[in-house]
């Protein structure tokens, strides 16, 4: 994976959320594409299997696509990059956007 230490965790939790909500890669990709996603279904599949690293914006967009798809399954929440502990030890946030003052970094 890439240099972001949280990428593997974000990827695993997304994969777990999709699995528990029974959302397949094709459905996820179409939703992600409809939100402006830029990588192909093949790459998304490789990312979900931990074989490919994606830029943080694309990862967060995939998390958002998953969360919009599995809205009815609260247990299936896929985390955004800023919800996972930062490298300097900040504690992870539990809820999407709760009290988030932090502006997402510009990526790529």
């Amino acid at each position: 994976m890439g240099f972001d230490p949280h990428e593997p965790q974000q990827q695993r939790m997304l994969a777990a959320a999709l699995k528990s909500a029974r959302v397949n890669v094709g459905e996820l990709w179409l939703k992600y594409f409809s939100l402006g996603g830029e990588v192909g279904e093949y790459e998304v599949e490789a990312y979900l299997q931990g074989l490919l690293s994606l830029p943080v914006l694309q990862r967060d967009l995939l998390a958002m696509a998953a969360n919009e798809l599995i809205d009815k399954f609260p247990q299936g929440h896929a985390p955004y990059s800023d919800e996972l502990g930062s490298p300097d030890g900040e504690s992870p946030r539990k809820e999407p956007g709760s009290g988030s003052q932090q502006r997402p970094e510009s990526e790529d």
Binding site: G36, L57, D60, L61, M64, Y80, P96, G97, S100, R103, P104, E105, S106, E107
Partner: peptide
């Protein structure tokens, strides 16, 4: 896009 996502969340 990141800003849109931030607002949505």
């Amino acid at each position: 896009l990141a800003e849109l996502m931030r607002r949505a969340r």
